[in-house]
Amino acid sequence: MKSPLGPVPAPMLAKSVPGLPDQDSVPGGLGYEPKWDGFRGIVSYDGESVEITSRGSKPLTRYFPELVDAFAEQLEEPCVIDGEIVLRLGAPGGERLDWDALSQRIHPAASRIQTLSSETPASFIAFDLLERDGLSLMERPFSERRSSLVDLLGSAVAPLHLSRLTQDVDTARRWLVEFEGAGLDGVVAKPLAAPYSPGKRVMLKVKHHRSADVVVIGYRVHTSGEGVGSLLLGLYDDSGELRSVGGASAFTAARRLELVSELEPAVMRDAEGAVVTGEGERSRFSSGKDVSFVRLEPTIVAEVRYDQMEGSRFRHTVQFDRWRPDRDASSCTFDQLETPVAYDFGAVLE
């Protein structure tokens, strides 16, 4: 893919920090923005056609025709914009971002793409400007790029939006709490004096991190064929049913082998002593993959760290923290999870 000036730049990235830094922690100060939970998108407009590429340089243009039309209609000059594709659902006053619905937009069938573009239209949140009218802005400080972005998209209308920005850290800390109720997953701090650095982790991000006690209901063997690749986790609902809520992975090679021994006492076996296995959930992303797993008796409790929930499942793969032999599996219920106060996504855009 190319921008009006050449190949599309890789997006600038962010590194995680435990808390929002103050203004004076970075020379030139910081600008704070909501962290939008969607698909990163670099939009290139050459004056006639629109191209959208993902963080990994994959083409996204065909999946979001409604955004392509909006950019072609509203942009008045060639440019390259960095932003996020999001999908908002719910009645006015109660909207929130919906990751599952956004994921469904990546579909191979053109007819299905067209249908979804009408049934669940996406929005684009612009937060940086890399090129404008044939000139690269990447060497200019973020404060100047932001000013040019406001000039370019300050009067944009839905589905195009300009990201909110504040230089007040107290406001940003309030956003971190309030905006989670609309489906956002944190706040990003951007050095106002920094140039755009493709592929570099120049920005700082703060995400929500929480812990929960979960039942280990099974494990998948690592793709190497040795050790535990991932733990399958569950929680009990109000009816007493143990429901799958996600998984934990990213273990070292040595730890993967240790886990096999630690989990052995709970491995389920049939009358002949053979290990009982199950078939995991499939999606279009897991087509052709081995989703089988070793079943475990629901007796082992683990403490894990997570950021947020998507419905009744962990939004992302969680991090294993420690075993909890002091906890009874039956006590691992959904009511231990923190529920963010609902917040209207529409209000986030104001």
Rank of each mutant, 00 (worst) to 15 (best):
S312E: 13
G41M: 00
L102I: 03
V215I: 07
Y32F: 02
G247A: 14
S197E: 13
S224K: 00
G227Y: 06
Q308L: 13
R256H: 08
L97R: 05
R132A: 11
G28N: 12
G183N: 05
E95P: 05
Y236W: 04
G29F: 02
V318N: 03
S147Y: 09
L152Q: 01
G225Q: 02
G186D: 06
G183Y: 05
S143K: 15
D46A: 07
S49V: 08
S118T: 12
A248G: 10
T166Q: 05
E73D: 14
P198D: 04
P195V: 03
Y219A: 01
I106A: 10
R256S: 09
P195K: 06
T223A: 13
D168E: 04
L130D: 05
E180R: 14
H316A: 12
P9Y: 03
L135R: 15
G28C: 09
E51M: 06
H161R: 08
R105G: 10
R105C: 09
V177A: 13
A110S: 13
A72Y: 00
A266D: 11
S25P: 09
D151C: 08
K200N: 10
Q114R: 15
K2P: 11
A193D: 11
R282L: 11
E241I: 14
L75S: 02
V177Y: 10
E303V: 14
E241T: 15
P4R: 01
E95C: 05
Q104Y: 08
D170V: 14
V304F: 11
V187I: 02
D307I: 12
E264A: 06
E178V: 14
A70V: 03
L231K: 03
K190C: 02
Q114Y: 11
G38H: 00
A182V: 02
E279Y: 12
T115M: 12
P141A: 09
S49D: 11
Y32S: 08
L160G: 01
A248F: 11
L337E: 02
L257W: 10
V80Q: 06
L232T: 00
L231W: 09
E73I: 03
R220K: 12
V318K: 07
E350K: 15
P298H: 07
R255N: 12
E272R: 13
G246C: 07
S283C: 12
V8W: 10
A248H: 08
L184Y: 08
L192D: 07
G278Q: 07
E303L: 10
V17Y: 03
A342P: 10
P108L: 04
G280L: 02
Q104D: 11
L60Q: 01
P198H: 06
I81H: 00
L129E: 06
S283R: 10
V215Q: 08
L75R: 00
I300R: 15
T277C: 02
D328T: 13
W36Y: 08
W99I: 15
K207Y: 09
A194Y: 06
K58H: 13
V169T: 13
V202G: 14
